[in-house]
């Protein structure tokens, strides 16, 4: 990991204005930066604006104030330097796995043969060999999320944005996907910003965990994770790991409980 700052978020505010309803302040004055090759996670109660921040960084929506810098340059719309893996299923159901993985490349005008060759490389990395010509509805949830990750990686972004990518998976599949994500990250050396509501997932994967407070979302605390790498699932049973998870949980417990009562 070098010290160069890849992603910088400066004083981002977001207020959703709605017709006939009170507006929602989703984010207030978010400042953060992510170094090149760093793996950073954001945890926070549901509704604390995590997805909104990720969509602003990706350029899908505009902030009400502040700006996003990639390698020092302000960005205000989606670009090939960032790629997103969405919380909801977002594969094209009428395209096969290989065509889905190649989707971003073909949109960018890459020749079909080249796009397919690149797609095949990431299909291999994501462990999807043999499923190239399957359709998304023929795959399990875990396999579909691998396709989503492969599709984002295929455009060779500098920054990978992941919005609760494993939330819909069962516990065992999730653990396997976590270790696979780690090895992909080690192999590709991407800068990763991951959202999760699972604290142990954040600690297990990250160099740093950013804890959000509930609405409006603000950064409550940034916690460096100095646990040694490479990490295996055994780490999750070590006292240092458990202690860190417990510390973060205490930071957000009150808000999560309040959120449960509200909904």
């Amino acid at each position: 990991m070098s010290d160069a700052i890849r992603l910088k978020v400066e004083k981002i505010d977001k207020v959703f204005k709605r017709r006939d309803k009170p507006s929602v302040e989703a984010l207030r004055s978010i400042d953060m930066s992510v170094a090149e090759g760093e793996f950073v996670s954001i945890v926070g109660a549901s509704g604390s604006g995590k997805s909104t921040l990720l969509r602003i960084i990706d350029g899908l929506i505009a902030p009400s104030g502040g700006r996003v810098l990639v390698d020092g340059r302000a960005v205000d719309k989606p670009g090939p330097d960032r790629a997103m893996v969405f919380q909801q299923d977002s594969l094209l159901p009428w395209k096969t796995v290989v065509d889905n993985v190649a989707y971003g490349l073909t949109l960018a005008g890459t020749r079909r043969a080249d796009a397919e060759r690149t797609a095949q490389r990431f299909i291999d990395i994501a462990g999807l060999q043999g499923f190239e010509h399957h359709y998304p509805h023929q795959l399990s949830g875990g396999m579909r999320q691998r396709v989503n990750v492969a599709r984002a990686l295929a455009v060779n972004p500098k920054i990978l944005l992941l919005d609760e990518p494993f939330a819909a998976l069962d516990a065992q599949t999730r653990e396997i996907m976590q270790t696979e994500l780690l090895s992909i990250w080690q192999e590709t050396r991407k800068t990763v910003l991951l959202i999760t509501h699972q604290i142990d997932e954040a600690v297990f994967l990250s160099d740093r965990v950013i804890v959000f407070s509930a609405r409006p979302g603000t950064i409550r605390e940034e916690i460096p994770v100095t646990l040694p790498r490479p990490r295996t699932l055994e780490l999750k049973r070590s006292p240092a790991f458990v202690e860190l998870v417990d510390h973060i949980w205490k930071l957000i417990e009150a808000e999560v409980r309040a959120g449960i009562k509200q909904s």
Partner: peptide
């Protein structure tokens, strides 16, 4: 809507 957003994230033009 989710598929449209994914396409936008990949920088798709309105025609695409």
């Amino acid at each position: 809507k989710q598929l449209v957003e994914a396409a936008r994230s990949f920088n798709a033009t309105p025609l695409q």
